[in-house]
Design a protein around this nucleic acid. Sequence first.
DNA 1: CTATCGCACTGTAGT
DNA 2: AGTGCGATAG
Length: 771
Amino acid sequence: MNKELESSIDFLKELNPAQQDAVKEIEGPVMIIAGAGSGKTRVLTYRIAYMLQHKIDAFHILSLTFTNKAAKEMRHRIEKVVGSEARNLWMGTFHSVFAKILRIEAEKLGYPKAFTIYDTDDAKKLLKTIIEEMALDSAVYKPNVIYNRISQAKNALIFPYEYYKDKEREASDQTSGMSKMGEIYTTYCQRCFKAGAMDFDDLLLKMYELLQKHPKTLEHYQHKFQYIMVDEYQDTNFSQYMILKMLAAVHHNICVVGDDAQSIYAFRGATIRNILNFNQEYPEMKTFKLEQNYRSTQTIVKAAGELIKKNKEQIEKNVWTENTEGDKIKIYKTLTDNEEGKLVADLIFDDKMQHQMYNKEFAILYRTNSQSRALEEALRKMNIAYRIYGGMSFYQRKEIKDLIAYLRLVLNPNDEISLDRVINYPVRGIGKTTMEKIRVMASEQNKSLWEIIDSNDLLKIGASGNKVREFVMLIKSFKAELSRKSAYDVAYRVAKESGILKDLYEDKTVEGMSRFENVEELLNGIKEFSQSKDESGEPITLDLYLQDIALLTDADKDVEGDDKVTLMTIHAAKGLEFPHVYLVGMEENLFPSQMALSSRNDLEEERRLFYVAITRAERKVTLSFADTRFRFGQLISNEPSRFLEELPAEYIHFMTPVKTNLPPRKFNLDQERHNFKPTSLKAQLGGHPKPLLPDINFKPLHKAQPTEATSFEADNTDTLEAGNHVEHQRFGKGLVAAMEGKGSERKAIIEFDQYGRKVLILRFAKLKIVE
DNA sequence: CTATCGCACTGTAGT
DNA sequence: AGTGCGATAG
């Protein structure tokens, strides 16, 4: 036993009795119900340290988490306690660990070792081409919907051939007019297989298939993973449950940690049943409850507790704390999202001044990523540094995906999505007609696109055949380099000789330059990566790199030590804590979200989400809602969230509507026009017609659903002129503003607050189309 | 086959 | 808002 381990025995004494019991019970099935802020990660960490102390080989321990961030945090903390031993642990997300295993075992399933991992965009693109090839109506068969349905099926371990064994499923497809769903699913799986590609769900499904079909392999991994730990167990789905069941079947040493109150992924197949079923699966299991909260004030713990009591389905527990009472939860009302941003920035500024706080002690949480924009603007104006997690990832950018597609293709030429992406980028004269011919041949001969263009069939293509041949040679020449050169050298050559670097370099627009820089950044990333070694000391090859980034998001490359305010969705905040938490957008239809209510009728999950948000805070929770909220120019809410009423009155404090200290100003259209500076360089150079007023997003009325907000009373809408004052059904008085666009005149109605400042804009275009 | 432009669509979360 | 797609001209 090394020194680090010895010191961790002392550390046990710092745990409370419940935590200690959970740590020491290392044999047999264990379920730990861990309330919010109850020191769960600590328990998991010491549990592993305790195992190592008791001569359990790190090689036999598997520790699974849900997100990369949690995995990283866990690895970090374990390294601190147990030192270098930690390297031998199998630790990671379900997806990354299974991807690693599938790489080793790929051939047993008929996949290439360097199989491609399709992200959601890739998968939807493939679905789109399949739907087109089947000549189905893309208005009925929406790739998005199809993708989700297939995902559901896969998570429930339903294979294509048994898709319609479930009559209920068949009926539901019938009623939604998608009777070809089963066929699409079948084709999709075949195409993925032929392309040597797996989507995210396949990483689970194929893992299951592997263990199911290959008893020897199952035995091997059962022996390897004699001790299994699962974090955030409440968020596992059926396929994960089944895989765990198989892996743990021999030794029964499975420890799951979770909190049913924090289950927020039911929408994508996670099921609370996994927790509830646990003792049926393992009757000899022991349960431990961690109920003492070390994170938050009395007020926060109690308010959150009262709130979550309203949910019917849950495991009985009583979360309590010895912490101080703390401030009440404050609730602010603002007029629009921009005002809300300003308010939050102001409040953070005040907090910082009054309490000498750092930026990093604040988090602003929201329900949807799109809410970040207004907050960003406000924080920027106040010069408060912030960092946004989630949203569009670096790896989803077009230029990044392009280069990665080349790299994927080099490793796995059958990958049709990547081939499709780059065969004519940069432009090399291989157009639609040529691709169509190749597609037809591939489908007739049941071959991949690459197999066609890498064969004599190329001769049948005609004039552009030579261009295709050149492309094939190019990819092959890259492939030849693989064994001789480092990942970085190959990647750099690809970027250069494919013409990507040149193409981007020649684009001197602001966007073009930033794209070039992004590619440079990716190459630098590959360089760093290829110089590092993996756990077994082997240099990182290109396929390992691709595997790695396929499962990575922006949020994972975090910069420690930066003093920045955190902006993220509530989902992303799970497992984190901050002294002050601002939760914005507390409106009906947004939170709880319209979708959760209409499609799944799942108010309880939204409530758990609210619970998660509040319990991130150590000392202070501030909630805010806007009087009206728009999305894509349409009103989506004008009503505070029902959750605000669910908080017991004794713990909350309604603040008066915001008073800003800006001097009142009268709105003046000419002045506004004069003040308006287009933000993008392109707009300044006159690239696009821009609205003469900032913040106006026009929406053609003839397509837009007339909402309460847009159906204002005016028979003479078509004669409205800029500067006209109009009466409006719900919002009262407004002023018409105009925008000069090409071809059509566009208008908007602007409203003012009591100071005469612009607060609300209703957007219209082509008003005369109203009938 | 390519470039350009206007139009339509999007819409919860993360691997 | 941003982006992808399709129509159209070159």
